[in-house]
Design a protein around this nucleic acid. Structure first.
Lengths: 145, 145
DNA sequence: GTGTTTGCAAAGTGTTTGCAATTTA
DNA sequence: TAAATTGCAAACACTTTGCAAACAC
């Protein structure tokens, strides 16, 4: 039997198996991280936000470990990196192709509803290359007037 | 004979007026910068590349001044910033909405032809916000065998 | 002359890395 | 016990800033 990598990630006791299925050792730090990330609903998070969330739960995980594992999770397809701007890296628990609004006024990042944006003719990659990721970001600023 | 494109920024003696039109003082450094940026065809550049290009032309402009003026030019609409990834900021002399390929193999950044990618239903911005910028980036990696 | 701009070097920011101690299987 | 993982602090790369000197008008 082969594990299905659906977009839905189970909660609670299932968390260790989420990691195990991808060949990742379920350490205390990783379980805490997974619980914050996959504990309910999709999220857009920065490393900093993760550390704060962990701290609130009294789970001490160093910033370096958070970074290492966010990248580790990304490599195995549990997360998707989002290029919003150069000052800060966001990770998205929704790994499907979809766009984001980035609100410059308050730094908020949220999904563009699928029905609000349609792309057709996603182009073929050039020779010898494959599409690794598609980033679509609509930056918002304060409407004047 | 070559026909000049219409939405190109004029060269030579016209450069000072490009700046003057936007209320920017045409200093030696800014003219050199404008000449590299707008000297022919649209370009995607980093601050580092600009400094190297200027150096080749024996025009000494400090990195700080290049950064300051790239942002200054962006503010007045001569350039558009592109969020490719967090390690480096690109500026585009083509300020219209269009997508980019970013080739992770060699760091190259180039336009997606208009006909290769079509977006319909560009969404309305939420209440109190306006769309400041649309970033569409397709990241390419090596196609494995 | 007056306000703007420049350039240097220092400071800042988010991220990555080296390595000894710890933990997992 | 062997290999993987963690955490700290130092290193990093890119960008911004403070300020005196130079420049544009």
């Amino acid at each position: 039997m082969k594990t299905e990598h659906t977009n839905k990630i189970p909660e609670g006791d299932c968390l260790p198996s989420v990691l195990a299925d991808r060949g990742i050792r379920p350490t205390r730090q990783r379980l805490a991280l997974a619980s914050v990330l996959f504990g309910g609903g999709h999220k857009h998070v920065t490393a900093e936000q993760i550390v704060m969330a962990l701290h609130k739960r009294k789970a001490r995980v160093s910033l370096a470990t958070v970074y290492n594992n966010l990248h580790h999770f990304t490599q195995v397809g549990l997360l998707r990196e989002i290029a919003v701007d150069q000052t800060c890296t966001y990770f998205d628990t929704n790994t499907t192709i979809h766009g984001h609004y980035f609100d410059e006024v308050n730094g908020a990042l949220y999904d563009i509803p699928d029905e609000a944006l349609t792309m057709i003719n996603l182009p073929q990659p050039p020779q010898g290359r494959k599409i690794k990721r598609v980033d679509i970001t609509i930056r918002l600023s304060k409407a004047e007037g």
